[in-house]
Design a protein around this nucleic acid. Structure first.
Lengths: 187, 187
DNA sequence: TTTCGGATATACCAGCCTGTATATTTTTTG
DNA sequence: CAAAAAATATACAGGCTGGTATATCCGAAA
């Protein structure tokens, strides 16, 4: 990928998170990225496509980081499920954290017909599927149910931390997760 | 309150939910409400103030509905805590439900300096306080901790249902809540 | 050195944005 | 009925929006 394209993606991603998507014009993006609209529109056909690519990049970054983080120590699957929340806590507490991209995007584009909303929904589901796979490996019978519960906790904590930094949502989510995981493993 | 002002609030509230706040111009609002910009700006000094009043109204409607719903049967406080999730499920499953206002507003106005973001944060806290009060009445020792956990579940479910209608998030949240409440009561 | 393609600068378009000025009509009140 | 108040229509201002047309520049390949 062209370094300019990469820079535009990175700048757009940052501005979308800090100022909001609709509130960020392409003029601002190119100004910060140090390029021009012509160049931007040569790499991305429209602002909507730029937004979609930014979302894909954010989700990919998160998922691959998380996956790396969890497969580093290949312990027992059940421990992996617990480690998951440590990783998420680390992610959320990182200074770079500014909220989860697909959560905010779906709020800003509420219409079902919007491609952005649909992509957000897909990413939310993909994450749930990932959780379900972890739960199944850990031997949870109702792995889908547990995955949904854990996703509520995680997305809730991500939002809580976005709405007020240092709310400690993830710490309580971790405690709740431990209880729910234990319960699901026993069943 | 003037009926026109009321109508504007209601129309704005609906449009903000269905199309997004930034994506909804005042021209659209007055057109749907059947009035003019002059009238709108006589009742609300700016669009920002209109947004703030809409948020207040939404939160007030939700909180008073929930309170009525829970105080109808004045059973034992512990049952009230369980009934809470039935009420929330009913609220979310209502056809009128289009996502929680303050959740979406905080996503659309991510800057801490924004009055809209701050109001959203306050409402989120107020809701948590409400949960904590319920938990304390029910005899939960760590009522604040449980309240935070339950708020993650509820806000997560509200978001899940907004992102995809019929996701069943609240059903699983209810199950998880039962486990967490039981656990907190025993402690 | 010439040619050629990608990046650039600049200017522009039409439409939408929030907000206002002015003047007219309707409604309420004394 | 008259005076005051509220709501209206219309038009406009200035700025930002996403997106484009044109022409220049610059570095690499021939």
């Amino acid at each position: 990928m062209s370094p300019l394209k990469h820079k535009i993606l990175q700048v757009a991603s940052d501005l979308f998170q800090t100022r909001g998507i609709n509130a960020t014009g392409v003029d601002t993006i190119v100004a910060v990225a140090g390029t021009t609209k012509m160049t931007l529109y040569k790499h991305f056909t429209s602002k909507e496509l730029l937004i979609l690519e930014v979302l894909k990049k954010c989700h990919q970054d998160f998922q691959s980081w998380l996956n790396d983080r969890l497969s580093r120590h290949d312990r027992k699957p059940a421990e992996k499920l617990q480690k998951l929340f440590d990783a998420i806590e680390e992610w959320i507490n990182s200074p770079a954290y500014q909220g989860m991209a697909f959560l905010k995007a779906s709020a800003e584009f509420p219409e079902e017909s919007s491609a952005i909303h649909r992509l957000s929904a897909e990413q939310s589901e993909a994450f749930r599927d990932y959780l379900a796979a972890l739960a199944r490996e850990a031997g949870v019978k109702d792995h889908k149910g547990l995955a949904l519960q854990l996703s509520l906790l995680i997305e809730g904590a991500m939002h809580a931390e976005h709405i007020r930094r240092g709310s400690g949502g993830i710490r309580h989510a971790k405690k709740a997760a431990r209880i729910l995981i234990d319960n699901a493993l026993k069943a």
